[in-house]
Nucleic acid binder design. Sequence first.
DNA 1: TTTCTCACA
DNA 2: TGTGAGAA
Length: 132
Amino acid sequence: MKIGDLARETGVSRRLLRYYEEQGLLRPRRLPNGYREYTEADVAGVRHIRAMLAAGLPTAVIARLLDCVHDDDGERMVPTGCPGMVTDLRHEQQRIAAEIDRLRTSQQALDTMLTSALRQRDPHSTPASNRS
DNA sequence: TTTCTCACA
DNA sequence: TGTGAGAA
């Protein structure tokens, strides 16, 4: 199928499908006219890519992990196990945990600034309620 | 319709 | 990570 067909079937824009190829996530073969030719397997492939992106994985990692996953009769993405896969996932999990810590620190700093700014404006107001 | 590239958020 | 525009 051509890029427009895959875009329709997956709901992912043609532009984005080209971007995924550029990142090494998809490897369509080329027709003599230079057009990309995709297979049915690429439909599942795009679903897997979307799922991994949603999990916060960067494209470089997804490129490695994509071959370590297969499709469970129609719907689910199932890990088949690859050397290094668990290591990669653990590493990403740690990276995300660190990122959350960093964001928490930012949030705390902003809360402090906001509280003090509000006190300047109205010294009698109660502290800002923090959603944390 | 599709390709690629440059620029940009 | 993802998009828009322009030219072929």
